[in-house]
Nucleic acid binder design. Structure first.
Lengths: 243, 243
DNA sequence: ACAAAAGTGTTATCAGTACACCCATGC
DNA sequence: GCATGGGTGTACTGATAACACTTTTGT
């Protein structure tokens, strides 16, 4: 079965991965490299992405693209914006690059972001020379991908305040301090530990487990989990107007 | 100058208009009508929309589409989602309709919504047989446009709680009760008038004018305005985590 | 004078913020 | 026994929610 690409429509994926150990919110990027007669023409990074196939929904394209790069499925995904400026692929290096690719110069892209754990991705067995970069220390990026990443990050910042998507970036069992560290990484702020603990522990969908951390060289801490079921059941819109 | 259309990419616009007099949040739709040998083949409504031109940004397409239908420019606009299912234009009536149009069956659309005042649109001088429908009483809709409208409405509900976009739907000078009525229309809830007044009047960017309503058959009420300047100046993100 | 809508105050409860020290564990 | 990170309590302040009657105006 041969799949027909739509040559002027693509999906690009901002893959966010949280690294518990370094407490760093990262983005997964792939290398764009091209040389001729010992001259390096293009050497930077881009988001993973691909054309939409004729038979696919946009969501399916995004899922496929993520799976191709990481092997992962069933990760949290959000379509957050379409990018379609006529000149979005018109940087000097982009033009050089596109010559070698089956790419329409006027391509619009539907951008998604994914939330997952850095450690869930095995970068060794991957043919794209993919690499994690901290969101605050991005390399040189091709196309309009820097902008796409920054808009995804903005959306993530806003969304993590009102929906429990933060837990998509953490293992199933986590400590309160790990959640706090993650909020601090994402938002770039300091949070008072006592207030944060109280707030989180009081949520009915945050469940203390009969377990403590193991293999830690200091005092092991209490583990918790997030219960989607309880969250969904108790969830009701509150219409707090706070503009 | 001839503009070249991109045949498989369109922009569709959900035009929200608030009608102060009937206190109704409306959507502007255009008629889709086709008959042959006295048989009515298609008779329903659709969103206004059009192909993206080669030289345009997506925002420019949306702006152009709104202007073409209403004559208005500089209205609040938001790109909220792209729709691209392979079967989104494949209803029976849609297929009949598309035969007559220069339309790719696999078109993805970037959907925008606009916020404006119903009274600002003059429907008489308009060639599309456009008509306002209350958001809660929509007619039969072509393509996937019902879904697009509902998703726009959801986004509007969420957004009006955290950003002062509500004032885009009201005249420059408004009364507190008008704002309350509008919130109630959008959210479908009842709000306590005393609490709402206090809350709104306490905002520094809500400014009491030296004016009262005129031409009203009952007690005229105090007029207020919204100051974008003050809002922008005092605005700073609050990182209230309330998932 | 009447109808209609505008406008007004108080209290109780809850959530957020600020702030500093002791505790349990592994080494 | 000590270094490390985990864990804890209180008081203040500001916002929200519940609740019913009086005032102003045009007709």
């Amino acid at each position: 079965m041969e799949f027909e690409k739509i040559l002027n429509i693509s999906v690009d994926c901002v893959v966010f991965g949280y690294d518990l150990k370094t407490k760093s919110l990262n983005v997964l990027l792939i290398k764009r490299y091209l040389e001729s007669k010992n001259e390096i023409l293009v050497d930077d990074y881009v988001l993973t992405g691909y054309h939409v196939y004729q038979h696919e929904t946009l969501d399916e394209t995004a899922t496929r693209v993520l799976k191709e790069l990481t092997g992962l499925t069933n990760q949290y995904k959000k379509q957050f914006k379409a990018f379609g400026s006529p000149d979005r692929l018109m940087g000097d290096k982009d033009l050089v690059w596109i010559k070698n690719e089956e790419f329409n110069l006027r391509t619009i892209t539907i951008a998604y972001y994914f939330l997952l754990k850095t450690e869930d991705v095995d970068l060794n067995k991957n043919k794209y020379r993919a690499k994690w970069f901290p969101i605050n220390d991005l390399p040189e990026l091709g196309f309009d991908h820097k902008n796409i990443i920054l808009e995804a990050y903005e959306d993530l910042k806003v969304k993590c305040l009102s929906e429990p998507i933060i837990f998509k970036l953490l293992p199933d069992k986590f400590t309160i301090n790990e959640v706090q560290d993650l909020y601090q990484s994402i938002l770039g702020i300091d949070i008072d530990n006592r207030n944060f603990r109280r707030k989180l522990i009081n949520k009915k969908y945050i469940i203390a487990l009969d377990e403590k951390q193991v293999g830690i060289s200091k005092k092991p801490s209490q583990l918790y989990m997030f219960s989607v079921d309880i969250y969904d059941k108790m969830f009701q819109k509150n219409y707090l107007i706070s503009m």
